[in-house]
Amino acid sequence: MRILLVEDDRKAAGLLARGLQEEGFVVDVAHTAEDGDEQIVGVDYSLIVLDWLLPGKEGVAFCKELRLRGIQTPILMLTARDGLMDRLQGLNTGADDYLTKPFAFEELLARMRALLRRCKLTQPAALTVADLTLNPLTHRVTRRGAPLVLTPKEYAILEILVRHAGEVVSRTRLAELVWKADLIGIDNLIDVHVSNLRRKLDLPGATPLIRTVRGHGYCLIGGEE
Rank of each mutant, 00 (worst) to 15 (best):
Met1Phe: 15
Met1Asn: 15
Val6Cys: 11
Asp8Met: 03
Leu16His: 05
Ala17Tyr: 05
Gln21Glu: 15
Gln21Thr: 11
Glu22Thr: 07
Asp28Gln: 04
Ala33Asp: 07
Asp35Pro: 03
Glu38Ala: 04
Ile40Phe: 05
Val41Arg: 00
Gly42Val: 08
Gly42Trp: 13
Val43Thr: 10
Asp44Glu: 14
Ile48Met: 03
Ile48Tyr: 05
Leu50Met: 09
Asp51Trp: 02
Trp52Gln: 07
Glu58Cys: 09
Val60Lys: 07
Val60Thr: 11
Phe62Cys: 03
Cys63Thr: 01
Glu65Pro: 04
Leu68Arg: 08
Arg69Ala: 09
Gly70Val: 10
Ile71Cys: 07
Thr73His: 01
Thr73Val: 09
Ile75Glu: 00
Leu76Asn: 04
Met77Asp: 00
Leu78Gly: 01
Asp82Met: 08
Met85Gly: 14
Leu88Trp: 07
Gln89Asn: 14
Thr93Lys: 10
Gly94Thr: 05
Ala95Ser: 07
Asp97Ser: 05
Tyr98Lys: 08
Lys101Gln: 09
Glu106Val: 07
Glu107Ala: 03
Leu108Arg: 10
Leu108Lys: 10
Ala110Glu: 03
Arg111Glu: 00
Arg111His: 01
Met112Ile: 05
Leu115Trp: 01
Leu115Ala: 06
Arg118Ala: 14
Arg118Leu: 15
Leu121Trp: 10
Ala125Val: 14
Thr128Tyr: 08
Asn135Pro: 00
Pro136Ser: 13
Pro136Ile: 12
Leu137Ser: 13
Thr138Ala: 14
His139Gln: 15
His139Ser: 13
Arg143Lys: 08
Arg144Gln: 13
Arg144Pro: 01
Gly145Pro: 05
Ala146Gly: 09
Ala146Val: 14
Glu159His: 14
Glu159Ile: 15
Leu161Ser: 08
His164Lys: 13
Ala165Cys: 10
Glu167Arg: 05
Val168Tyr: 10
Arg171His: 06
Thr172Asn: 00
Thr172Ala: 03
Glu176Gly: 01
Ala181Gln: 09
Asp191Phe: 12
Asp191Glu: 04
Asp191Leu: 09
Asp191Ile: 08
Val192Gln: 06
His193Cys: 11
Val194Gly: 01
Arg198Ala: 03
Arg199Lys: 06
Lys200Arg: 12
Thr207Ile: 12
Thr207Asn: 08
Arg211His: 09
Val213Arg: 08
Ile221Arg: 11
Gly222Trp: 10
Gly223Gln: 11
